[in-house]
Amino acid sequence: MEAQVDETRSVDETRPAGPAERGRGGSRTAGGPGRILVTVYAIFAVAACSRSAVQISTEFDHARLAYLLSAFAAVVYVVATVALARPGAAWHRVAVAACATELAGVLAVGTASVVDSAAFPDQAVWSNYGSGYLFIPVILPVLGLTWLRRSAARERVADRPARESANP
């Protein structure tokens, strides 16, 4: 019984920010610089959602492909915002998938809009690599994926001493 108590205490001491602490204090992904990332993603989620809702409900026939792609982008931004703000490994994987989808999307749609501009009579969020949005759509997923890699690496470092002392 005493050995049990000692073990838990040593685990606590060698674990500066274990999963329980992270659960209370919010996720590491949404902390520090990640909080700014979530802010920008949230702005894009709101902007893309409302823009595509207005476009599809009022002038869908004008540029169907561009508006459908904008709606898809809106969904990706919402998923990325929620996943980046939430703690846990599962949300981390969702965030990586969302950022990767976003990067692939902005590169594919950006290239398509440059090659075949007739197919994009009206601006979509991702057309011309997001030039209508200060090119933030193409920068954001790169920053997102970089941040997710770094925060994952830090979590592994933080968890390692806890695992070693828990499994003698």
Binding site: G26, G31, G32, P33, G34, R35, I36, V38, T39, V40, A42, I43
Partner: peptide, 16 residues
């Protein structure tokens, strides 16, 4: 959202 992180990054959030 900025008050959730009482560090420099909270100020950054408010700036954005």
């Amino acid at each position: 959202w900025s008050l959730g992180d009482r560090s420099r990054w909270g100020s950054g959030v408010l700036g954005i």
